[in-house]
Design a protein around this nucleic acid. Structure first.
Lengths: 338, 338
DNA sequence: TTGAAAGCGCTAACAA
DNA sequence: TTGTTAGCGCTTTCAA
């Protein structure tokens, strides 16, 4: 392994100068010296040891990302968006799947902290109504590592969050179904406890109320934010003779589970059941029928997450904190359009 | 931040002793001293800096994982399997999505190397018939970092691989379709250049030949290993009046894309089109109809990948290298059964 | 503009 | 069984 010392020797300079040119600072370097160093670097194929750099500079180019489960299409797309954004800023991702297990989440968290990550991005982290169990909270409280929550508004632990207009999106989606003439719209919600679920439920209720309908009169269902659990819940739902004719589902993943259950039960979408949902994952465009959904700006969310993290580390009291991103209703055919 | 020095002071021992108890070696420590250290650690809530440990010990608890695209269900499940396995051995994952872009892949690779990862696991890495572009090869050649290829047999760069019985699985899947009485079976292949694609194509051909059928007489299609590209290819396929009545598709992801295209074209599975595929992702069980597929032991693949990596680092000339894992035909309804 | 040198937090060889 | 100490590869202060 080639080290900085060898480069310095080859270039005939001190090791400090090598650092100055590699880091482009903090001291100026003469053009001649810079060239000699660069030549030596090329000749020896020198690659700085990031570990040593981080240790010495007390800063790292690694960002931790904790997701519930990458296997989930929405999480996967978000993780990819975060990676794209991290890459653009010369950072890498340490990934942890929490798998809806708070012990596993805590473990990832501690590992990331021990690895001296630059910051940690959390996606949809919640256990019960609390975000973390007490032990985890203590760890977080004692750390100065920047935290960013996606889709979860909180300023605990000095965290920042990237928010999307859950309530507005749910309102738009539900209203669209109402405009199709439906007079009752079931709510197929994500796991309670999540603020996004509360907000989407509120948007759905708002839309009903705006039409003089009572949310309390509607059927409601609940499943985890994934196609498998939604599939299981939907099967039970369809087994009941009285299944709803219109549904606002809290996520595309859940909608896909509902689609599968409907297909199995011989129920046609949108003829027998109209469906709209939330997220706007890629798959919404190719499922049959195309899924009408309130689309989140996923790429933008990933971008802001990394921006906020780096701003927090830099100590910049970013105006980005708690920004609320817009959600757009993407109309396809599951709602009955066409 | 609490350091080892503070722990030593609190425990009234030397810093070496603190290291010995934390690392459980390499020197023995008296029970009394151990207790004092442990108490100090607990009292101060000390957490070792992994960066410093790695730098000093020239070994790391981080493993790099390069996948084509986590957004792909198969990749996601494999990534999760690798994480599970890494977690069980107290390691963490640095994740990189190559996105079918060799420059991006090379970048991840270099970053991982700079981060001094313990080793790198590659999933389905191929560009053209080569695995890497020349520049990347040079980097790899110059590195002593253990490499593990999933589903790609090679011993270049001193790498190890975890193989599955692609040919046998494809043979079993195709044969099953043949037993249903089909006299021609189209091949819906993954991207050429991948060894797994070659092997699955061979297995399909073997089965046809065993029945006296000529593979050259069959229709063949090709798409990337994902539902989106398969969807696009399948749409064109169905637009042609002469679409096949039985297909062996190289992956479940592709089968799902075919399902979507079929649904859109009003083609029923399995009545109008019988389908079998490969991989055995979770979703195969809930799609409609259930997907008959040659299932890979995904969890076991992830386990072996990490085992081989750590064995390689330890210098253990592992007997695990190049092990070939069995594939099981999982019969559901897409083939026409029931 | 450059160089010498003191760390960053930890491991482990060596001496006791 | 314990302590001292020399690094690991790099950053950055301080003096030149």
């Amino acid at each position: 392994m080639v080290t900085r010392d060898e480069v310095a020797r080859e270039a005939g300079t001190s090791t400090a100068v090598v650092s100055y040119v590699i880091n482009n600072g903090p001291r100026p370097v003469s053009a001649a010296a810079r060239k000699r160093v660069l030549d030596a670097v090329a000749k020896l194929d020198y690659r700085p040891n990031e570990l040593a750099r981080s240790l010495s500079s007390a800063s790292s180019s690694v960002i931790g990302l904790i997701v519930p489960d990458v296997t989930n299409a929405y999480c996967g797309e978000l993780a990819l968006a975060v990676e794209n954004s991290a890459l653009a800023r010369n950072h890498t991702l340490l990934l942890g799947n929490a798998m809806h297990d708070d012990e596993r989440q805590a473990r990832h968290l501690q590992t990331f902290l021990a690895q001296q990550v630059q910051g940690i991005v959390f996606i949809g982290s919640t256990y019960g109504d609390e975000m973390f169990r007490p032990e985890t909270k203590r760890v977080l409280q004692g750390s100065k590592t920047p935290l960013v929550f996606l889709d979860r508004s909180t300023t605990e632990f000095g965290a920042t969050s990237v928010l999307v207009d859950n309530r507005g999106g749910a309102y738009a989606a539900t209203s669209h179904l109402l405009e199709h003439g439906h007079t009752s719209i079931a709510g197929f919600a994500g796991s309670s406890g999540l603020s996004s679920v509360r907000e989407r439920r509120d948007g759905w209720a708002d839309a009903l109320i705006a039409r003089g309908l009572d949310p309390a009169d509607q059927q409601t269902f609940e499943s985890a934010f994934d196609r498998y659990d939604a599939f299981a819940v939907a099967r039970v739902m369809f087994a009941n003779g009285n299944w709803p004719r219109a549904i606002f589902s809290h996520s595309d993943e859940q909608s896909i589970g509902i689609f599968y259950a409907a297909a199995q039960a011989g129920i046609r979408v949108p003829e027998d059941l109209a469906l709209v949902s939330f997220d706007g994952i890629k798959e919404a465009a190719i499922v049959n029928p195309g899924l009408t959904t309130a689309r989140q700006p996923i790429a933008r969310v990933g971008e802001l997450a990394v921006d906020q993290l780096l701003a927090a580390k830099a100590g910049t009291p970013s105006e980005l904190r708690q920004e609320m991103l817009p959600v757009t209703l993407e109309i396809r055919h599951s709602c009955g359009c066409h």
